[in-house]
């Protein structure tokens, strides 16, 4: 758990305010290569914000975030190039509404990496097949179910060959019967050794797949540990209350 130089993502003393609200308080977090870290906590705990600071969709007030030992670029080409190395999957999928499924996946490789069209499309089709939506390649996002859209969003990220992936509540907007099809893709990714930071309420996923669970409340990291430690022997009252509340239903 101690910071060492093999950590791919390092956050040191990160603070962030929204006006009066102190949404991130002295966050220290390291993610090792190949590690799957799950962020959980009640809504408003700052877990999504934390996830989004890692590819600078949110800026921070103080502290530092390092990726592969280098501080995040602040703007311009360097920032874009950095983001191309990090995949991001959103709660609301955010597929490009005017592009076909195939074009959604090839857009990044073609425009950012300069991959030739034929090659990009071939790889995109492989990825779409892998997440199980190859038949939908020529439809537009609105024609797909939420679960299918989210799997396309994952394929879109994978097409960039990311070094790490961020998942910001990827199943929260889905109907219950679609949650598993998305989680299965994520489990597969984890097993292949992808570095992942996952904000989720899916405790089964956290228990099965993650190497580490980080529990947040009120903008602070309250505790962290292996899934077994955390779920079976939570240390803080806040974590106990939280676990009770989600098991209670």
């Amino acid at each position: 758990m101690a910071a060492d130089n093999t950590a791919i993502i390092q956050m040191h003393h990160v603070d962030k305010h929204y006006g009066e609200l102190h949404v991130l308080q002295d966050i220290n977090l390291d993610v090792q290569k190949g590690e799957v870290v799950v962020l959980i906590g009640p809504s408003g705990s700052g877990k999504s914000t934390l996830c989004r600071t890692i590819n600078r969709l949110e800026t921070i007030d103080s502290g530092e975030i390092l990726f592969e030992g280098k501080p995040l670029p602040e703007e311009g080409k360097e920032l874009a190039a950095y983001r191309a190395e990090i995949g991001m999957v959103f709660q609301s999928f955010n597929l490009f509404a005017h592009k076909s499924i195939l074009d959604n996946v090839t857009l990044g490789p073609r425009e950012v990496l300069g991959t030739p069209k034929a090659e990009a499309e071939m790889e995109a089709m492989e990825l779409l097949a892998r997440v199980g939506v190859a038949e939908q390649a020529h439809k537009v996002p609105a024609q797909l179910s939420g679960g299918q859209q989210q799997r396309v969003a994952i394929a879109r990220s994978l097409a960039m060959h990311p070094k790490a992936m961020l998942f910001d509540e990827p199943t929260s907007a889905l109907d219950p019967e679609m949650i598993n099809e998305v989680l299965e893709v994520m489990v597969e990714l984890a097993q292949e050794g992808m570095t992942m930071v996952v904000v989720t309420h899916e405790m089964s996923f956290a228990r099965r797949v993650s190497n580490r669970v980080v529990f947040m409340a009120d903008g602070q990291i309250m505790e962290e540990g292996t899934p077994d430690e955390f779920f079976d022997h939570p240390k803080t009252e806040r974590a106990k209350d939280f676990l009770d509340s989600i098991r209670g239903h």
Binding site: N55, L57, G76, K77, A80, A81, Y82, R83, A84, E85, I86, G87, M88, F90, S92, F93, N94, L95, F96, A97, H98, L107, G108, E111, V112, A153, R156, S157, M160
Partner: peptide
């Protein structure tokens, strides 16, 4: 959301405006 997704893919501001 789409703007953030475009940013995450690594598109520059000009590319986002032009393509999205």
């Amino acid at each position: 959301g789409q703007i953030e997704a475009a940013r995450s893919v690594g598109l520059s501001f000009v590319q986002i405006v032009r393509l999205i």
